[in-house]
Amino acid sequence: MERTTLLRKMQLIIGVLLFIGMLISLYNVFIMVPTEKKMGIVQRIFYFHVPSAMMSFLAFFTVAGFSIAFLVKRNLWYDRVAVICGEIGVLFTTIALITGSIWARPIWNTYWSWDARLTTFLILWFIYVAYLMLRDYVGEDERGARFAAVFAIIGTLDIPIVYFSIRWWRTLHPSPVIAGGEGSGLHPDMAYTLFFSMIVFVFLFLFLVIARLRVENSRMILAEIKRTHILSSN
């Protein structure tokens, strides 16, 4: 029962912070920050696109980390955290792909291009959808957890190789503007908006993880109740 109350409290606190943060972030993105000269209004999607992409990476690294931890420790909670982050990672990757396409239509004149980063992201999406399917399609729970963990480790190592092989093939994506040289520097308001949006997305990520953990926790309690009920009824 302790875990139940702890999760509820955490969700409440993070939920409140997330709500406030999101309001501020929306104000920042749509009202406060100046419009970018060359790209125009569509550039504002950038404040959702970049954090989503970052969060999907965060999610998938967490998947890999918890997968290794699960294989070593055999604690089924590690597996649950990994699966949850896999689901959320797929969600953020989907958002990043869609917002990217919306941005690319007016800027590159096409929804899609086989550029290294885009393609890698698409492959990433396929790998983690496969990961979730594998986790579901294995009959036995613990075995599914092991398979998914192994697959996640393979998938994570595969991503950089995919990236390099596609870059070897062709490329078009704008080079990273934040880490770039002087010419590519961001307006301080833009940098602040992006940074703030990033923080809000981290909270969103945590909020979703905890919400899903609460579901898993309830499921476990329910299974235990069912078990004791069945035992006492026959």
Partner: peptide, 12 residues
């Protein structure tokens, strides 16, 4: 299931 797992990883 095998192609679903294997193809994305096989891209390189």
């Amino acid at each position: 299931m095998l192609p679903i797992l294997l193809f994305p990883v096989m891209i390189p």
